[in-house]
């Protein structure tokens, strides 16, 4: 049965709130259900790409990592976040509504004619710091943001969510080299390592190998974690700003479609919509908690 945005779990608002595991878990469930409802309404959007990133995003916003003020998207000093893997950019929308950056009523309008919330995000939407939809831009743009902050002696950081398949793009490695050389320790790349691109498994299609090793060889601090474990995510986010002048790459092993059993790890669901029976099964799956500990 459809879930309502109003039923979201409450946290104390703002970035100071370091929510308990229980609350984060509830947020995960709320975000997955809200996104499912949004996508089903117009049958537009990419559920599996969002679902592998849910815990990574929830922990960023509600785990006391990001610095922002509720309802203040234009606060120039706030941290920046870029979901560079554009298919998952919509996963930010319920969060942006929750933190008072966009009106809650916009969620029901997602992808509807002339509505604010588009399939891929762009900075006309409050709280979206860079355009997405074309892979390989977010890390370079974030590097510019971080360099400007360094030049101006501001403590601002930028967090970029990359897809593992996005790491095929050469521009990612151009940016990785620069960020390391420039000592951008205020830059954090989070790689959603779900192992799938649209046409299949990355390691079978064109091997990516160890993304952690790749970033480390570019002079980054790098770590690999379980991207559905709040404990491991918190540990990794705890390293932000403690990297000895290096940018930080967090490679998060995840499951594409995590939370809906028949979508998990299945590339064919990237752009497919469930029929009525499958929707019933999906809602049932979304009743249960899917995160790892």
């Amino acid at each position: 049965m459809p879930h309502s945005f109003q039923n979201r779990p409450r946290t104390t608002s703002g970035a100071d709130a370091s929510a308990s595991l229980e609350i984060l878990t509830a947020k995960s469930q709320w975000l997955r259900r809200t996104l499912f409802e949004m996508v089903m309404r117009t049958r537009k959007g990419h559920i599996p790409s969002c679902y592998s990133s849910i815990e990574l995003l929830v922990a960023l916003f509600y785990g006391g990592v990001l610095r922002y003020r509720h309802g203040k998207p234009n606060d120039t000093g706030r941290d920046r976040w870029i979901v560079s893997k554009g298919h998952a950019a919509m996963a930010l929308y319920p969060i942006l509504a929750d933190i008072g950056f966009v009106a809650e009523s916009e969620l029901a309008q997602f992808t509807k004619k002339d509505a604010l919330l588009r399939m891929y995000a762009d900075p006309e939407i409050p709280g979206i710091d860079a355009i997405s939809g074309s892979l390989g831009h977010g890390l370079g743009i974030a590097s510019g943001i971080c360099l400007a902050a360094k030049q101006d002696s501001r403590s601002q950081r930028a967090f970029v969510l990359l897809g593992d398949s996005e790491c095929y793009e050469g521009s990612i490695w151009e940016s990785a080299a620069f960020a390391s050389h420039a000592g951008l320790d205020n830059l954090v790349a989070i790689v959603d390592r779900n192992g799938l691109s649209i046409m299949g498994r990355t390691e079978e299609l064109c091997r990516l190998g160890s993304i952690e090793d790749k970033f480390r060889s570019f002079g980054w601090e790098a770590v690999t974690i379980d991207g559905h474990s709040y404990r491991e995510i918190a540990e990794a986010y705890g390293r932000v700003g403690r990297t000895g002048g290096k940018p930080l790459a967090i490679v998060a092993n995840t499951v594409k479609g995590k939370g809906i059993s028949f979508m998990e790890g299945r590339s064919e669901w990237h752009n497919r919509m469930p029929d009525a029976a499958q929707q019933e099964r999906a809602w049932a799956d979304l009743e249960t908690n899917c995160i790892s500990h």
Partner: peptide, 16 residues
């Protein structure tokens, strides 16, 4: 790295 140069520039202008 012309690609990164342009994205980097965008990040810098976004920051004023």
């Amino acid at each position: 790295c012309e690609q990164n140069m342009i994205d980097l520039a965008a990040g810098l202008t976004l920051s004023g």
